[in-house]
């Protein structure tokens, strides 16, 4: 379970799954989801899973180098995940289409590089459906 600071008495705590369908910077979707996740965690809610789909898989790149005066979206997610032990899942089918690979997958596919940040894990679409089943609310952030 996540930390429960900031619980409001009389408010019921919930489990949320967040679905992020757009990549970083091009759309605000990932930023909005991040701010929502932070606010939900501050209130004591649980983020059951953050699922990255469509171009949203690009949020998981460990190779992005944004300008120093801008936010680093991937690192922001990674830090939040570390603090709250978030389960951040990248859809394998969407990731493979877009050249997003972790080391295991790169080995399996015979590719010479991998680019998934270690704060994220690659798994199947079933994880999204399971998130919808296990959570009180599923919320989509997209274009």
């Amino acid at each position: 379970m996540n930390c429960h600071k900031g619980i409001r008495l009389g408010k019921s705590l919930m489990k949320f799954t967040l679905l992020i369908n757009e990549g970083p910077y091009q759309h605000q979707a990932s930023d909005t989801a991040y701010q929502f996740a932070k606010a939900a965690l501050e209130k004591g809610h649980e983020i059951y899973r953050v699922f990255f789909y469509n171009d949203g898989v690009n949020n998981a790149t460990r190779l992005a180098v944004p300008p120093q005066d801008d936010r680093n979206i991937t690192e922001n997610w990674a830090a939040l995940a570390k603090e709250h032990e978030l389960d951040m899942v990248v859809c394998i089918a969407a990731a493979q289409r877009r050249g997003m690979l972790d080391a295991d997958e790169a080995g399996r596919q015979g590719k010479d590089a991998d680019n998934i940040h270690p704060a994220f894990r690659i798994s199947g679409l079933g994880q999204l459906v399971e998130g919808g089943i296990q959570s009180d609310r599923l919320l989509t952030f997209g274009d």
């Binding site: 369908n21 469509n54 999204l128 919808g132 089943i133």
Partner: peptide, 30 residues
């Protein structure tokens, strides 16, 4: 649970229709 997949976008111009259908097919297993 009742899952509803709402498709509002045309196919081909963007990938949303195709990738939404992939989720729908997976959801059948649950």
């Amino acid at each position: 649970k009742k899952f509803m997949f709402v498709n509002t976008k045309a196919p081909y111009g963007t990938v949303y229709a195709l990738e939404s259908l992939e989720v729908v097919l997976i959801s059948a297993a649950f």
